[in-house]
Design a protein around this nucleic acid. Structure first.
Lengths: 244, 244
DNA sequence: GTACGCCATCTTGCATGCAAGCTTGCGTGC
DNA sequence: GCACGCAAGCTTGCATGCAAGATGGCGTAC
């Protein structure tokens, strides 16, 4: 037997009726990529799920070619593993994988914060306001005990930090890498102590950016992610998650 | 006419006689990727070169399919751009591209140095020795006035830093990103003042790693790359390189 | 002479056909 | 009863065929 969850539904790919070929580029391949990535992130396709290109192609109503390309991308990003002659396996994240991911986020978000503080001046006020608003949302959600809303706001803060730093490459890399830790963060959301500290640390970052102090901004961003790492990784190790 | 350099030779792809399919996976597609990437990095295929998938496939002695996959990867990494209906364009790097790349390297190498210092203990002595050896090579090359050898050793130092940090993801990301700046570094090699400072800064990094001081190690690594950035980018801007 | 519109060609994206290797299950021999 | 060998099937990688859209050139009209 291949796996336990062959019967998982993968229906419902959004066939945007734009150019089937042409400038939109990679219509089907891209659709397959986005659909599968999203399905894995939301656990619609669980870790350990195994299937062949043909099966996935059939479920998605397309041929093997675009699925093949999507799989190559997903493998590069660590979401799946193409097993030699056995099919495609949805991979989980081990605690050490997560450690790697957090170390990268520490570096990238530090760089983003630094860059934001360096740019300074003009558009910064707007960014600061956005970051402040998201931090406020976190606090409100935390007060209300709504951890999902807290996680949404927290994620939005970190997304905004890298998205607004003006460095498109950082944005793309961070999105890819942090996507991989999405499941882990959500799963452990209730195993962690209430994240009261997060908002404070976010404000440290915001302040340094507003003060146009790149060194302090980078330092604050790294310290924040470091603390998250040192909190999250031990929990996973203790739980002895082989993969999640 | 498409471009000026259609007649460039792209012959000579190394057809490793391993399994044409099977476990090695992506034999031809991977070969195409590596060959093209290398050719672009070494300027065998110059910036501005433009061709179609069919032409490249013919030159490489394979069909369009593996070339197509290779191109998708190269585009994601920023080496080429697939123009809607006009073919594939080898992209150059603008000064702001290079700024982005350096900001990322600042972050990633900082994280690598931090991680190395954190691991501490056992295998660190070996890594420290390797880094020290490469730094020595830089000094010797610099004394001999051999800038190419200096650049080789410098590159090896930075490669070793991220490769030995134990984080495979950092290694891969850094390799991809730093590869893109390869041409720029080489081209400006003789436009910069003699890099006497580099060896000193490398030793700062090495010392902090040896002392198991992650904060200092990260800080030193970032400071080193920051200086390189602030030296290189203005040169490119001044030269008004649209792309290189 | 210039500008606009139409047609042909070119290029890519996807579907399908083909080949080859690994895996696995069964049969046989010890 | 167990282990080894063989064969068949399954799965992926690559080649090729097909279709569709955009671009550029050429012809015509003003």
């Amino acid at each position: 037997m291949k796996s336990g969850s062959r019967d998982q539904k993968i229906e419902g790919i959004r066939r945007t009726d734009e150019s089937p070929t042409g400038q939109g580029s990679e219509a089907r391949a891209d659709a397959a990529y986005r659909f599968l990535r999203n399905a894995i992130l939301t656990n619609e396709i669980p870790v350990g799920f195994q299937a062949t290109e043909v099966e996935i192609a059939a479920r998605l109503g397309m041929s093997r070619t675009p699925v093949h390309e999507a799989m190559a991308r997903l493998q590069e990003e660590g979401f799946v593993q193409i097993l030699p002659r056995r099919g495609i396996l949805v991979k989980g994240l081990s605690p050490s994988d997560l450690l790697e991911i957090y170390d990268i986020l520490i570096g990238l978000e530090g760089a983003a914060a630094e860059r934001l503080a360096l740019e300074g001046g003009d558009g910064i006020a707007e960014v600061v306001q956005e970051l402040e608003g998201l931090t406020k949302r976190m606090e409100l959600a935390l007060d209300a005990g709504d951890m999902d809303a807290w996680a949404d706001a927290d994620e939005a803060f970190h997304d905004a930090l890298v998205a607004r730093c003006g460095n498109g490459r950082i944005r793309r890399l961070a999105a890819t890498v942090s996507g991989q830790s999405h499941r882990a963060r959500r799963l452990t959301l209730n195993m962690r102590p209430p994240p009261k500290q997060s908002a404070i640390e976010h404000r440290d970052i915001i302040q340094a950016i507003a003060a146009a102090d790149p060194i302090a901004a980078g330092s604050a961003a790294r310290a924040h992610r470091r603390r998250a790492r040192d909190q999250l990784v031990p929990i996973l190790r203790r739980l002895n998650f082989a993969a999640l």
